[in-house]
Amino acid sequence: MVSDTFADDIIAFLPNLRRFAISLCRSPDTADDLVQITVERAFAARHQFDPDTRLEAWLFRILRNAWIDMTRRTKTRGTQIDIEDAPDASTVDGTKVTETALMLKSAKAAIETLPEAQRDVMMLICVEEMSYKEAAEVLDTPVGTVMSRLARARLAVAKKLGINTDTARSSGSQGDS
């Protein structure tokens, strides 16, 4: 039987799918294509969905696999932003931005420029708030590997942002202001 909520659940989750897609391909247009492929695959394979698992994790998995397929096909695509082109806090032109906004912009760029494997775990766990186990399933990777990648990702991001063990606490409390 067709479950009535399947389509509604997917629609409700589209913003998250799109966000994860943007982190993968770093081009909103390509991300939208990727989301479209994902929903089409989800409907084509909906009988394979195990209702005892979370739809979100299943959809992320489809999306990531679609991305792998896409990159396999178009090795020479020109949509990826080079690391050097990523927005940098120091080059925001003349606009007055608060320190927090700058920090968040740098943080986004810092995550985007992580090695792919680290970036994916960080997006799924820190941004999309999946459990380690769910992320492991999405990425088809052992939980132990997910954890070591996630730890390395966060240490790297902390370093890029100047959060270190000495300043972590004070920067945390400043964040409230």
Partner: peptide, 27 residues
């Protein structure tokens, strides 16, 4: 604190993307 902070920062940094409108054709 490093791990608590990086999670918070990551979530906040990507929050605006979640607020972007999803193209109607996808819905």
């Amino acid at each position: 604190a490093l791990f608590v902070d990086t999670k918070m920062v990551a979530k906040d940094a990507w929050e605006p993307v979640l607020q972007e409108p999803v193209p109607e054709y996808l819905v």
